[in-house]
């Protein structure tokens, strides 16, 4: 295998020249190439209709590519994914613990056999006291934490997040951004994160893939070299401001406006 930019880390997934069209003429995504390595935190940043959600659906195997290939290192294993949607997407009839149990349950594993994993991940997201609560009893931020816990509980090779914090208020959003980075440090997961927000993408990721719409395509990749762990102080640093400007400019180009 050829050496990647972050070649020391083993690869997870390779998208090469992936194109997705609907009804033959609507190009949702054109020629996307992306290599994902273990431990990456990649943000897909772009305006509506740039194909970032399509890219996630393709990786998740929910739709098939029109052309190009998506290869998992070491063979196609669909099962090794965690997903977080824009909505918490919890089962309202099930408790927090039962919701987090779901990925195991669908593999035929009993609750008793994975109880420790469930407790561990809920402790990490700070919800160990809410095992038996129903989703309706939780705030929006807490529901999203349950959703994140569910995506991580099986320690999947790759976690896809589709604008998970877009519907939350800014204070909750900042808190969850911080917590997500801590979780990532503890669990060491690989994440592809779709977002509208320049600030969020710079704070969270080590690579930002800036995308443009009509047709959906990648126009630029911004590398965020700041080391993890990133604290709240990073948000006010000059480096952060400079990176935000760089990503912002790329986004303006993507939207066809002068920077």
């Amino acid at each position: 295998m050829e050496t990647k930019r972050l070649g020391q880390r083993p690869p997870v997934l390779e998208m090469s020249n992936v194109t997705k069209t609907f009804n033959g003429d609507v190009v949702a995504l054109r020629n996307m190439t992306l290599s994902v390595n273990e431990g990456d935190f990649i943000s897909l940043l772009g305006p509506s209709g740039c194909g970032k959600s399509t890219a996630l659906r393709l990786i998740a195997g929910l739709t098939s590519t029109s052309s190009g290939r998506i290869n998992w290192a070491g063979g196609q294993s669909q099962n090794d994914l965690g997903v977080v949607f824009q909505e918490p997407t919890l089962m309202p009839w099930a408790t927090v613990a039962q919701n987090v149990w779901l990925p195991f349950r669908l593999r035929g594993q009993s609750y008793a056999s994975v109880k420790d994993e469930i407790l561990d991940v809920l402790r990490l997201v700070g919800l160990e006291k809410f095992l038996d609560a129903y989703p309706r009893e939780l705030s929006g931020g807490m529901k999203m934490r349950v959703s994140i816990a569910r995506s991580m509980v099986t320690k999947p090779r790759l976690i896809l997040m589709d604008e998970p914090f877009a519907a939350l208020d800014e204070i909750t959003r900042f808190r969850l951004n911080n917590d997500l980075l801590q979780l990532k440090a503890k669990i060491g997961c690989t994440v592809i994160f779709v977002t509208h927000s320049v600030f969020e993408s710079v704070f969270l990721s080590d690579r930002i893939v800036v995308m443009a719409a009509r047709p959906g395509r990648v126009i630029r990749e911004v590398t965020v070299d700041a080391p993890y762990p990133r604290s709240e102080a990073f948000r006010t640093s000059a480096e952060y401001a400079a990176l935000c400007r760089e990503a912002s400019e790329a986004l303006h180009i993507a939207m066809g406006e002068p920077a």
Partner: peptide
Amino acid sequence: DHNLRDLFRIYGATRWQTLRYLRLP
């Protein structure tokens, strides 16, 4: 819920599991 259906698909749920754990509830 459509997202839950997608989630079940991603986790490779069988028809029976989707019925039992998602559609019937």
